[in-house]
């Protein structure tokens, strides 16, 4: 008896909780263009290059790498950093463009309603 009552109460509460987003949340349409992948990739490359530079500086201070190797690797990493920063700029512009287009689309949707 107790079991059936407890099960009934839990089931009702669970159904209300699970249905809540369908009943009371505003519908959110996901943009067809998702920029987060590009951002994450570029930021990941940037973090990676900084981490490699930090490791290189550490190895140099600890005497684990000779001056010649240090200079070669540092130039290589700075060049990579430069490319990554250019890519980051491109992605930023791309995102701004997408946001602008999305806003225009939303305004247009509002106007047609």
């Amino acid at each position: 008896m107790h079991y059936n009552v407890a099960l009934l109460i839990f089931t009702v509460i669970s159904l209300v909780i699970l249905a809540w987003p369908f009943l009371f949340s505003r519908h959110i349409r996901i943009s067809s263009y998702d920029v987060s992948d590009e951002v994450v990739t570029v930021l990941g490359q940037k973090d990676l290059t900084y981490a490699q530079l930090a490791d290189l500086e550490y190895d140099r201070h600890m005497g684990k790498v000779n001056e010649q190797s240090y200079l070669v690797v540092r130039d290589e990493l700075l060049s990579t950093l430069n490319q990554v920063e250019k890519a980051e700029q491109t992605v930023r512009e791309h995102i701004a463009q997408q946001v602008e287009q999305e806003l225009q689309r939303l305004h247009a949707d509002e106007a047609t309603r």
Binding site: F10, S14, I17, L18, A19, W20, P21, F22, S25, H27, I28, I30
Partner: peptide, 20 residues
């Protein structure tokens, strides 16, 4: 299906699951 409501419901189910 990129359905945010379904994802939100799943998120609430995670809490419900923990409580149960």
């Amino acid at each position: 299906t990129k359905n945010k409501r379904l994802q939100a419901s799943a998120k609430m189910a995670v809490v419900l699951q923990f409580v149960l």
